[in-house]
Design a protein around this nucleic acid. Structure first.
Lengths: 341, 341
DNA sequence: AGCGTTAACTTTATCGATTAAGCATATTTA
DNA sequence: TAAATATGCTTAATCGATAAAGTTAACGCT
């Protein structure tokens, strides 16, 4: 078995409490004693049992994170950033992937609560705020990530999705597109936000009608390319057809691009295409894809900061901290119609 | 505050132990009492404090995972699969990303041990097995993931990297390549294994000499494309130049492809290129990249199975379980020289 | 009737720490 | 010089559960 404080105390002829205090640099302990303790602790490579400590202090130094899909680079990037940043403050990260299933998510929330995590960070797949009741009842601080709820008074960190939609659409307009279509994502706040931003940008230029919005359907990210392909085929059947396309995410944009090229049209000359997510290796695609970078790392860092400041708090009536990370346009060949020069 | 067993016991006029046993379906408890308890527990949405439980049982129902880079799709895929599979057995997953820094990794190991995880799953960035001493001393079961140590008697789950190298190289040979080069990865067992497989495949066909191996350098994955580009430029300066190229990973293969195309050569006709990792959206690249699929999900599932079977074990003298997941060739345009028909 | 069993709880000890009180000894302070 | 304060430890209580051992009433058997 592993050494316990009791063992060290016995060896040194001290009480357990003295050892405990010495380890935590409590002022009660004299210099000589502290040194003796630390020396023996170092020799043994002793580390206090965090379970036991947590039981009495009520703090577990653990953040719980639930994402819809850990394989998605956006969420993986956020998870990595959170993990790295909170570790610097002594926190660990318990991660689970809900696979876009609300029931699984609720179960995972319950599990995190049973584990007494100090904070829950949640990119929810729920449509209502009800799933958060339990968290609230427990008084565990909760940070909503990427996806928000209409009337919920909760902390939030994520993109300003209206800005995402507006940025992408304005870029297409600037490139000379006049009939700009949108592939709309599933029933989550991000899709609604991007659609709204798209509409705003169009309205601002008097390009609102007719509306060229096509649904990608409920498919998750893994089917994004197929969904984008199918939706775009439907768009191309319209006449006159669109000359610009803002896609909910990059996979659907890739599917869209395939559909456009297969139809014998040119990208970006006939149809300019922009996605969202800024996938890695976009530069190595057949036609490098313009996209909106969501800044996963920045989001993760801000979540980490908020989480560590919230940990230890209980039911603090602090006003919700809403942190909208600005998106960044990355223009590549798929939209650049007027090469400079 | 949240309800505790004591509260429920008091309300129902029972002892804490009775409630505890009722919740765990202990045979001591009568049907009527059990029902009363379960009913009240359901009403309150009570969940036992897992910290307290762990302290006495010694099991935390937690698996610790350390990977070099959570953003890397291979490790993200593994993490996702592990998380999903162990959750079904009641386990949670504590994840951290070591960023390929041995010191960070060691610190993370210590942290996981202090948190009393039941099993540690480790894709190590260390060069020696010394960093595992502490784990061993504690008797915590440990599963090495993806990267192995020479003489270590430890559980291992990952690819058969010699098979990876051999599979890729044999494929190039089958496509008619005769001067096959290799971009070698950094100082980890996977790079050594793939190199060895490459050599074996060449030797088997009497194509061994001269050796056309170029180092990618110590760069991690994020610089893979640049490193691949640079190494390939050096390769192209040779004469006669290679006609086939097996790259350590996909990013370096993309860099290699860029170098080849910039030199005015054709892929795969002048030089066929194959990578490793089977990156998503490989089909949407300028020239779809052939690659070796490592089967991240399969690896994750096997790790999960092994981990749950090992949890609760201490210093079991069970012989190390070595699980080599077979790689799968995914041939695409970058290597297919003889289109069928 | 007497005694061993069983069923269904309760009481006590424990897990490995932390926090709150005690208690000498030494050092100031008035 | 006596009372007041610090200094540096120790002992007792606690965190929220589980495990081991004890208790009591009902039951069955010869």
């Amino acid at each position: 078995m592993t050494a316990r404080m009791k063992d060290i105390a016995l060896e040194l002829g001290l009480s357990v409490v003295t050892v405990s205090k010495a380890l935590r640099a409590h002022p009660d302990i004299g210099e000589a004693t502290r040194r003796r303790v630390l020396e023996r602790v170092a020799e043994l490579g002793y580390q206090p049992n965090l379970m036991a400590r947590s039981l009495v202090t009520g703090q577990t130094w653990t953040v719980g994170l639930i994402v819809p899909d850990l394989l998605h680079p956006f969420f993986a990037g956020i998870a990595k950033a959170i993990s790295n940043d909170i570790r610097a403050h002594g926190y660990g990260l318990l991660i689970s992937s809900s696979d876009e299933e609300p029931d699984a998510e609720r179960q995972q929330i319950r599990n995190l609560l049973a584990r007494q995590v100090d904070v829950i960070v949640l990119a929810s797949t729920q449509t209502t705020v009800d799933g958060l009741r339990e968290i609230e009842r427990r008084g565990t601080p909760c940070i909503l990530l990427d996806r928000r709820f209409a009337g919920a008074e909760a902390h939030f960190v994520g993109n300003d999705d209206e800005a995402v939609g507006a940025l992408a659409t304005a870029h297409l307009i600037a490139q000379g597109c006049r009939r700009i279509a949108h592939l709309r994502g599933p029933e989550v706040s991000t899709a609604a936000g991007r659609l709204s931003g798209y509409r705003q940008a169009l309205a601002q230029q008097g390009l609102a009608a007719p509306e060229l919005v096509m649904d990608l359907g409920p498919s998750g990210d893994h089917r994004g390319a197929e969904a984008g392909y199918a939706a775009t085929r439907r768009l191309l059947a319209l006449s006159p057809r669109p000359d610009g396309l803002f896609c909910y995410n990059d996979p659907s944009a890739l599917g869209a691009m395939r559909a456009v090229l297969e139809a014998g049209l040119r990208v970006p000359d006939d149809i300019a295409i922009i996605g969202c997510g800024n996938l890695s290796y976009a530069d190595f695609l057949r036609i490098p894809l313009s996209s909106i970078d969501q800044g996963a790392e920045a989001i993760g860092r801000r979540v980490a900061q908020l989480a560590t400041s919230l940990a230890g708090t209980r039911n603090a009536a602090a006003p919700p901290h809403v942190d909208l990370v600005p998106p960044r346009l990355v223009a590549r060949a798929s939209t650049i119609r007027f090469p400079k020069g």
